[in-house]
Nucleic acid binder design. Structure first.
Length: 424
RNA sequence: GGAGAGGUGGCUGAGUGGUCGAAAGCGCUCCCCUGCUAAGGGAGUAUACGUUAAUAGCGUAUCGAGGGUUCGAAUCCCUCCCUCUCCGCCA
């Protein structure tokens, strides 16, 4: 959520900022509701104060054994008036909250203008796309040729957007995950966590997937439904829920390997071939909980942590700054890392690293006690993929493919593969 | 799944309808005393919102969450979430 104070006092600025995303914030409707809220709150609190005073007087009278009938008579309409005021206030508050939960985050000042991914700005490139003296195949052809990637089997048991990996390919996938976790925990100071894959709606509300993106989530059919996590960002960031950290407990760096589940509603027809867009995929996630003033630097750092993985794997990539229109709902600023895929002849997203500012922290009540004032202040949260394992596997297959149909195993993965240096 | 107990402030733990945002202890902060250390004395110590120049006052809310009863609820009733004990089942 955006700071309600900012919504109230800097309404025009908020409106202009959100307009950069192409989001139309109805400021008049908001301010009107806010005005009602104020009036009703004062009215309600006055009546509550009156009720409390009466109740106290009755209590004192009763203690002294005095007759309380006249006092009871004096409050007989108060309860009704208070109830009505409270009811109205509750409704207005709910409307305000609904409105606030639907607002995307304010963009950082240095986010470039633009409407779609075509306007994203390339920041840097690393590595050279490999030159093949044959026509490079895509990962689907490579995997099926090896007999280790089976989309048909997956489709027969689960439908579209699932896959089955077998043998050395499944092992390579696991090796990627182990390698990434080792890099992030041993070299970058992240603490590894094992977390639930099913969470309450409140957890998704805290990180911003709900209420707006309910259609993207898988949900169990129970009396109190649970949601399959779309990313480990959800359980990891929820570790900060209701916390008031001591100043020296930040920053916190957390990582977890989890499966991720996405319904991919609204992406019919996109990336239907292969493993690029699946209902289920594995990812190593990076989350940082930091002091507010440190978050811009932390974003640069976290992005670098994801890049390290690709450098070690010797996979060519580029980093782009997402433009205003392409930046996600809760982010103030996002860098996408795109890896080179020879089979497609283009760079494709393999990691998305975002600074959420206080957007999630406000929903989660994640705070830190200020060293200066001693008062609790909202922390800033960041997250990024470090990196997506399924897509990393695709990148390895396509960049390391050999003319004979085999695939070379990247040097850094061989220790995780029992020394195996090629598949097929 | 069955039976029972319980969720109170940073922690332990009192409080079964009235002046309770909440005893007491621990911890923490500040001050005093003590020639070090240890011990002792005093004061303070939740969060959010509203009002405000104010992180001063004052008001409101919060004792797992949401409803209800009542002039008045931490305390009574209902629903849900969670924890613990015993039994069953189970990787």
């Amino acid at each position: 959520m955006i700071d309600p104070k900012a919504l109230r006092t800097a309404t025009a600025d908020v409106q202009a900022n959100l307009a950069r995303r192409g989001f139309d914030f109805d400021a008049d409707a908001y301010l009107k509701l806010e005005e009602q809220r104020k009036t009703l709150q004062v009215e309600t609190e006055t009546l509550q104060s009156e009720r409390n005073a009466h109740a106290k007087r009755i209590g004192q009278a009763k203690a002294k054994g005095e007759d309380i009938e006249p006092l009871l008579a004096s409050v007989n309409t108060l309860g009704e008036r208070l109830g009505a005021a409270e009811e109205k206030l509750k409704r207005v508050r709910q409307s305000l909250r609904d409105l606030e939960l639907g607002l995307p985050n304010l963009l950082a000042a240095d986010v470039p203008d633009g409407a779609s991914e075509d306007d994203n700005v390339e920041l840097r490139r690393w590595g050279e796309p490999p030159a093949f003296d044959f026509e490079p195949a895509d990962h689907v052809a490579i995997g099926e040729r090896l007999g280790l990637l089976d989309f048909d089997a997956a489709a027969s048991m689960s439908g579209a957007r699932f896959t089955v990996m077998r043998g050395e390919l499944a092992r390579l996938h696991r090796a990627l995950i182990q390698f990434m976790l080792d890099v992030q925990t041993r070299e970058h100071g992240y603490e590894e966590a094992y977390v639930p894959y099913l969470v309450h709606d409140t957890a998704l509300l805290g990180t911003g997937q709900l209420p707006k993106f309910a259609a993207d989530q898988f949900k169990t059919d129970a009396d109190t439904p649970l949601y399959l996590i779309p990313t480990a960002e959800v359980p990891l960031t929820n570790l900060a829920r209701d916390a008031i950290f001591k100043a020296d407990e930040l920053p916190q760096r957390l990582t977890a390997h989890t499966p991720c589940f996405r319904s991919e509603a609204g992406s019919h027809g996109q990336d239907t071939r292969g493993m690029i867009r699946q209902h289920q995929f594995e990812k190593v996630e990076l989350v940082q909980l930091v002091h507010a003033e440190d978050s811009p630097a932390a974003l640069e750092e976290l992005t670098g942590h994801a890049e390290t993985v690709l450098k070690r794997l010797e996979l060519p990539y580029r980093v782009v700054t997402l433009c205003a229109g392409d930046t996600g709902f809760g982010a103030t600023k996002t860098y996408d890392i795109e890896v080179w895929l020879p089979g497609q002849g283009k760079y494709r997203e393999i990691s998305s690293c975002s600074n959420y500012g206080d957007f999630q922290a406000r929903r989660l009540k994640a705070r830190v006690r200020s060293a200066d004032t001693g008062k609790p202040e909202l922390i800033h949260t960041l997250n990024g993929s470090g990196v997506a394992a399924g897509r990393a596997l695709v990148a390895v297959l396509e960049n390391y493919q050999l003319q004979d149909g085999g695939v070379r195993v990247p040097d850094v993965l061989q220790p995780f593969m029992g020394g195996v240096s090629r598949i097929g």
